[in-house]
Simulated assay, not measured.
Amino acid sequence: MSDPYPDQISALARWSLIQALWPPALVAAISIAHSLVAPEAYGSSLAIVARLAAIAGAGAVLAVSAILFFDALLFRLMASYEDEQKGGAAVDDILARMRLKPVPPQTRSLANRAAGTRRLVRLQRVALTVFIVALGLPLLAVAA
């Protein structure tokens, strides 16, 4: 029976990369379209606050996307090792050398690492929702 680790880690690396790339592209496309369609929607103080919230949401999307991209690279590194234990140890070593995380007493499992990435994706979705809703509020006020 073959080891499922290489396929699992490669799929996780691909998924993380996709999750890192499409939300910033969507933020850019929506921002461009919004500035072309509704430049007059920002006269009130509510609209200014909404615009600031949208900027914060966009910034959060970009920040989390950068972390997800880094995660994808770390998963690719893990995939270059023959088993989960060695790949996880290599990632932990790199994170410790970069002073991003201390060396854990025990190497984290792939499931644990994947759960952390899923938490980041949920956070990214919340930030994307804040961005979209905040951009839409002034448009609703203008339409009313």
Rank of each mutant, 00 (worst) to 15 (best):
S65V: 14
G57R: 01
T107C: 04
R76W: 07
L140G: 09
A96P: 05
L62G: 15
E84F: 00
V37I: 01
T129Y: 06
A47K: 04
P138G: 09
S2R: 06
S44M: 02
I18M: 15
I67K: 10
A54V: 03
L100M: 10
A72H: 10
P104V: 03
A66F: 08
G57A: 01
T129C: 10
G136C: 09
A66K: 10
R99Q: 13
S10L: 08
D92R: 02
R119E: 06
A33Y: 02
R125D: 07
L110I: 11
A58Q: 04
R76Y: 00
Q8V: 15
A141H: 07
S45T: 13
L74C: 03
R97C: 08
L46V: 11
A66R: 12
L46I: 11
A72E: 04
A114R: 03
L26N: 10
L36V: 02
I18Y: 04
K86Q: 14
Q19I: 01
P24N: 00
F75M: 06
H34R: 02
A54W: 00
A20G: 15
L68M: 05
I132H: 06
A144I: 01
R14T: 14
T117W: 07
L46H: 10
P105M: 08
P104A: 13
G57C: 09
P104F: 14
S10W: 01
T107L: 05
S44C: 05
I55Y: 04
I32P: 13
A60Q: 11
H34A: 12
A96W: 02
P4G: 06
V61T: 07
A20V: 13
P138I: 01
P6C: 14
A127S: 06
R118N: 12
L140F: 09
R122W: 05
I67L: 06
A33H: 01
T107R: 01
A111E: 05
P105Q: 08
S45R: 12
N112H: 06
D71L: 13
Y5V: 08
A134D: 03
F131H: 07
P102C: 01
S80D: 12
G87Y: 02
W22D: 03
G59I: 12
Q124H: 14
W22L: 05
F75Q: 13
R76C: 06
L135N: 04
A60K: 10
A58M: 11
I48G: 03
V130A: 01
A90H: 09
L135A: 11
L36S: 09
V27T: 15
V121M: 10
T117A: 15
L120F: 00
Y42T: 10
V142L: 04
P23G: 14
F70L: 00
Q8E: 13
G57E: 04
Y5D: 13
I30V: 09
V126G: 08
R125S: 00
L17F: 05
P138F: 01
E40I: 00
A79D: 08
Q106C: 01
I9C: 15
V37L: 04
F75P: 00
L120I: 06
R118M: 11
Q8H: 07
G116K: 09
V91E: 07
D3H: 02
A144C: 05
L100I: 03
I30A: 07
V142R: 01
V37H: 15
S109A: 08
P24K: 03
G116R: 13
G87P: 12
